[in-house]
Amino acid sequence: MNNVYSIDLSLRPTTFDLWHVCLAATVVLLAFILIAVLLSVLIGHRRCSRKAEQARQQMVENEPETRVVEKIVEVPVEKIVEKVVEVPGPAPEPVVLKEATPEAALQLLGMLQKEARFIDFIHEDVSQYGDADVGVAARVVHEGCKKVIDEHFSLATIRQETEGSKVTLAEGFNSAEIRLTGNIVGQPPFTGTLIHKGWRVTEFHLPKLTEKHDPKIIAPAEVEL
């Protein structure tokens, strides 16, 4: 019975023999294989989904009638690609829509919350309170918003005339700056009443963010010690 193997987990091998070498090698090999398999699966999946995406986009652009295809996401990827190839004629230039940078928007929200308690105010149930209470809070919000806007934006009115006065718009006026409403008929020059003088940001600057800053946290929770 002196051949019995006793198990003692606190023991440490003092010699590094061949068996240990084999064991280590196997572990490394298995790990390598696992990583390789996972990577290949990941890459394959990526490629597939990108192809599917491209195909779907092109199809949507080319023939809006076949939108049904969009729903059949389960359809094997190859098939969709085939369909695209069948579409005759060159594809028209895709319209480029500018993507709004989400960080600037989050930053502005953060500043409005910090200075003006903007989110706090919007989340209140105003109907529960009287006008006097809401008015007191509105002062905080107004003051803070004003501070944020004044500090980071320079604003100018688009039209300098007083609101309510008659204005005449010559031919070729900038329709992005001036929006016509009401009885729009005939040819310019147009004469009408200035309802709103318009605003234009002439200059603005937002704080720069450090790389690790998370702009989604627009107000950290505050804990006083």
Partner: peptide, 18 residues
């Protein structure tokens, strides 16, 4: 000029000193 000391918590209306 009215002065308001807002509540520190997230509820802004009520609880503010004016």
């Amino acid at each position: 000029i009215p002065l308001v000391v807002a509540n520190r918590g997230s509820s802004l209306i009520g609880g503010s000193l004016r």
